[in-house]
Amino acid sequence: MNSTKTGSVVVIGGGISGMLSALDLANSGFYVYLVEKGPSIGGVMAQLDKTFPTNDCAM
């Protein structure tokens, strides 16, 4: 066992990819720090109206 390792992960970026990465890590037993430069998470996807090819609402 590598005693220098820490069971936590820093996720940089709170867009759709960063958020989901953070969730998967937190749900599989790691402590996660999600770091986002802006005032809110959500990234570009939260600004979209609909998504292709299903035309689902992006929110």
């Binding site: 992960v9 990465s21 790691f30």
Partner: peptide
């Protein structure tokens, strides 16, 4: 996103669950 979580998890497999 999930793939990166898997890769980071592999890297830290020994210490999983130590901080939660």
């Amino acid at each position: 996103a999930s793939a990166a979580a898997s890769a980071a998890g592999d890297f830290l497999a020994d210490v999983r669950g130590t901080m939660t």
